[in-house]
């Protein structure tokens, strides 16, 4: 298969209330691997309380699509944390 250059890229930085929650979000999202790594790659990491998502894709259209779906899932994670985090109770 021809090697496609991953020319399009974008980095998202999403701040969380604590490094713990940022790490949880990263671990949750990282379970779903790239379906086609040859045309679209996502690298997930955290820096303190910031969740960092690096996207690299072959086309702009694909970039939009993968960012969209990642944001939808990130939003789901954030909403779940907002509704059900018990950290405050436990500390």
């Amino acid at each position: 298969m021809a090697i496609t250059a991953l020319n399009e890229q974008l980095t998202l930085q999403i701040p969380f209330p604590s490094p713990r929650l940022a790490k949880i979000a990263a671990d949750v999202l990282d379970v779903d691997k790239d379906l086609k790594p040859e045309v679209s790659r996502r690298i997930i990491r955290t820096q303190d309380n910031i969740l960092i998502l690096d996207f690299q894709t072959s086309t702009l259209k694909l970039l939009r699509t993968v960012i969209n779906s990642s944001l939808e899932m990130a939003q789901m994670v954030v909403n779940t944390m907002g509704a059900f985090d018990t950290e405050q109770d436990e500390v």
Partner: peptide, 9 residues
């Protein structure tokens, strides 16, 4: 995704 988030939290 929700199940994982709850489990980790």
């Amino acid at each position: 995704t929700v199940a994982r988030t709850l489990a980790l939290m």
